[in-house]
C-alpha cells in the first residue's frame, strides 16, 4: 500500500473535493464546480462518484457499490475492487452493513439510515441542459429561480404523450429553492430521496458536485392535474415475490417471454434468504447466505 496515498487521491485533491462537498451540503441542490481529476477509468464509468467516494472514505468504512441496483456487474465490481486495493477498506453487498454506498442509477430498496452516505454517479448534472444549452444562461436561471422552462418540458410531455413521459432523471425541487437532476435513477426512486442518509452527487466529466443533507425536502415537479406518479412495472418479482421493489424486465427467449426481477440484487437475495420465494425463484444456497 505504500505506492498509493489512502484511497488513491492525494490529500490536496481530497481537501479540494471535501470543500466542494461541504459547500454543496450547505446549499442543497446547488451545483458546486470542482477540479475533477483524471481517474484510471473512462468518463462515464463513474469518475465523479469515485472521486467523491475517495474523498469521503475513512479506513473504518464499509463500502458497497451498485450499478442499476446490482452488486455484480462489471462496473460495480471494478470500482469495489479499486477501493479494496487503494483504500483497503472493508466491502459488503449488504445495504444495511455499508457506511458508504456508491450507486449508478438506483437507490437501494432497503431504507437508508443516519450515518450512511449514498454517492451518486452523475452523467449530466444540469437539469435545464436540454432546454437551454448555454451554461451562462442556466446558471443565471438557477440564481434567479427562473424555472418556468422546466415546467415547459413537462407541459410538452403531456401535450405530446398525454402524460409526463419522463421516467428517469425526473427533475426535483430541493428545499423550495434549486431544481436538481437526481441523476438517471428511475422516478420510482424519487420519493426515497427524502431520507436519513447523506446523499452526494459527483459528475466527473462535467466537474460538478451537489448534495442533499439528511431529511432535505425533495419534491418531484408536476402539475396539479397531472400529479407525479412514481410508477413501476405492475408485477411481483419473479424470484422473491416482492411487490414493492423496482423491477428489471428480462427477456428469456426468442419468443419474447419475459420475467420481472428486482433490480436491487441484495434486496432480492435477502428476501429469498428469509423464505420469500417468487414463481421462478429458489432459496439461495447456504454458502451465499
Amino acid at each position: 500500500m505504500s505506492d498509493y496515498n489512502f484511497a488513491y487521491l492525494d490529500e490536496q485533491t481530497k481537501r479540494m473535493i471535501r470543500r466542494a462537498l461541504l459547500k454543496a451540503l450547505a446549499i442543497p441542490g446547488y451545483q458546486v464546480p470542482f477540479a475533477s481529476r483524471e481517474m484510471p477509468m473512462p468518463y462515464g464509468w463513474g469518475t465523479g462518484g469515485v472521486q467523491v467516494s475517495a474523498a469521503t472514505l475513512t479506513p473504518e468504512d464499509t463500502f458497497k457499490v451498485i450499478d442499476q441496483g446490482a452488486d455484480d456487474t462489471t462496473n460495480a465490481i471494478s470500482i469495489r475492487k479499486f477501493f479494496e486495493k487503494t483504500a483497503n477498506v472493508g466491502t459488503s453487498e449488504k445495504t444495511e452493513e455499508a457506511t458508504i454506498i456508491q450507486t449508478r442509477h438506483r437507490i437501494p430498496e432497503t431504507e437508508l439510515q443516519e450515518g450512511q452516505i449514498l454517492v451518486y454517479q452523475v452523467p449530466i448534472p444540469e437539469p435545464l441542459r436540454f432546454l437551454e444549452p448555454r451554461e451562462t444562461e442556466t446558471r443565471r436561471m438557477h440564481a434567479l429561480e427562473d424555472y418556468g422552462l422546466m415546467h415547459v418540458k413537462l407541459y410538452e410531455d403531456i401535450a405530446r404523450h398525454g402524460a409526463i413521459a419522463t421516467a428517469y432523471a425526473y427533475p426535483v425541487m430541493v428545499q423550495d429553492r434549486y431544481v436538481m437532476d437526481p441523476s438517471p435513477i428511475p422516478k420510482f426512486d424519487n420519493p426515497k430521496m427524502e431520507m436519513a442518509a447523506i446523499q452526494l452527487f459527483g459528475a466527473g466529466r462535467e466537474q460538478r458536485i451537489y448534495a442533499l443533507p439528511p431529511y432535505t425536502k425533495v419534491v418531484s415537479l408536476d402539475f396539479e392535474d397531472h400529479p407525479f406518479d412514481p410508477s413501476k412495472a405492475e408485477h411481483p418479482c419473479a424470484l422473491c415475490g416482492a411487490e414493492d421493489s423496482y423491477l428489471d424486465e428480462v427477456i428469456t427467449d426468442d419468443q419474447g417471454t419475459r420475467m420481472y426481477v428486482c433490480s436491487d440484487t441484495d434486496y432480492c437475495e435477502s428476501r429469498r434468504a428469509t423464505g420469500h420465494i417468487g414463481t421462478e425463484g429458489t432459496q439461495p444456497e447456504e454458502v451465499f447466505a
Binding site: 418556468g148 415546467h151 407541459y155 402539475f223 392535474d225
Partner: peptide, 14 residues
C-alpha cells in the same frame, strides 16, 4: 404561450 404562466407559478396543465 404557457411558459410565462408557468414561470409565475401556474401549475395546472388543463
Amino acid at each position: 404561450v404557457g411558459e410565462r404562466l408557468m414561470a409565475v407559478g401556474a401549475r395546472h396543465y388543463g
